[in-house]
């Protein structure tokens, strides 16, 4: 009994130590030799340069003419704010974009920043008729394009003392659009295991609408603009 007990005690320890030494050899020793480990910083975001360009110059959209574009501080971040008009019509819209600005930047529910910005710009910003809306985007132009994918967005009516807007908001990612930072986090973690990253752009579209009207009347317009914006961000930014 004693020797069997001892035998087992030795065996479990030897298995453990061999495993740990193997881990040390593969995972740690190379780092000790060069003084740097992979976990010290996340993999690079390859498209950062393109994303910075979007922040500075805004986003050109097929069928829309940019009337005005500038960079504004909203919350603690720099957003591209552009006012644009649909070609051949009187329809106007505002497009606010916050592209990722560094490898450790992460979406942080910037919608509350937009609320604060709208409130100080127009006073008494109120949200109503809120729903989570989704639309399908087909990225036909891209060679490595996946099948059509769904974008999940916040859709609501925002009213102020002076205007009323139909508002559409989401985080644009490659082949994905979502409102929750948590879903970006999961996608980015999965990508990091493959030495890749998931870049993101926070999008807010504000379409002026009739005072105190039904926001659903503007869904078709909001959806088609949303599709164009998502498509262009993927083309120009990622």
């Amino acid at each position: 009994m004693i020797s069997l007990h001892h035998h087992q005690q030795l065996l479990t320890r030897i298995i453990a130590i061999l495993g740990l030494i193997l881990l040390l050899g593969v995972g740690t020793v190379p780092g000790y030799l060069v003084g740097h480990w992979k976990w010290q910083e996340p993999p690079a975001v390859i498209s950062l340069k393109k994303l910075k360009q979007i922040r500075h110059q805004g986003l050109t959209l097929l069928g829309w003419r940019i009337r005005e574009q500038n960079v504004q501080e909203i919350g603690e971040h720099l957003w591209s704010v552009q006012r644009m008009q649909q070609q051949g019509s009187q329809v106007e819209a505002m497009l606010l974009l916050l592209p990722q600005n560094g490898p450790t930047d992460q979406p942080e529910v910037e919608w509350t920043d937009i609320d604060g910005w709208a409130n100080s710009r127009w006073q008494n910003w109120q949200i109503s008729q809120f729903r989570v809306a989704d639309f399908i985007v087909k990225q036909l132009e891209l060679i490595n394009s996946h099948s059509p994918y769904q974008v999940k967005a916040r859709f609501f009516r925002g009213t102020t003392q002076q205007n009323t807007f139909a508002v559409l908001q989401w985080y644009a990612m490659p082949n994905l659009g979502d409102i929750s930072p948590g879903n970006w986090f999961i996608a980015d973690q999965i990508a990091q295991w493959q030495q890749q990253r998931v870049p993101w752009v926070a999008v807010s579209i504000l379409i002026p609408m009739e005072p105190l009207g039904q926001v659903e009347d503007y869904w078709t317009l909001a959806r088609s603009l949303g599709e164009v914006v998502q498509t262009e961000i993927v083309k120009a930014g990622f």
């Binding site: 001892h6 005690q9 030795l10 453990a16 130590i17 030494i21 040390l24 740690t28 780092g31």
Partner: peptide
């Protein structure tokens, strides 16, 4: 001697753990 060997193994496990996690 067997018991000593177990002790040495225990100490080495602690040592390797330390090497694994010191930088972290």
């Amino acid at each position: 001697p067997k018991n000593n060997f177990v002790q040495i193994l225990d100490l080495s496990i602690l040592g390797v753990l330390l090497l694994l996690y010191a930088p972290i």
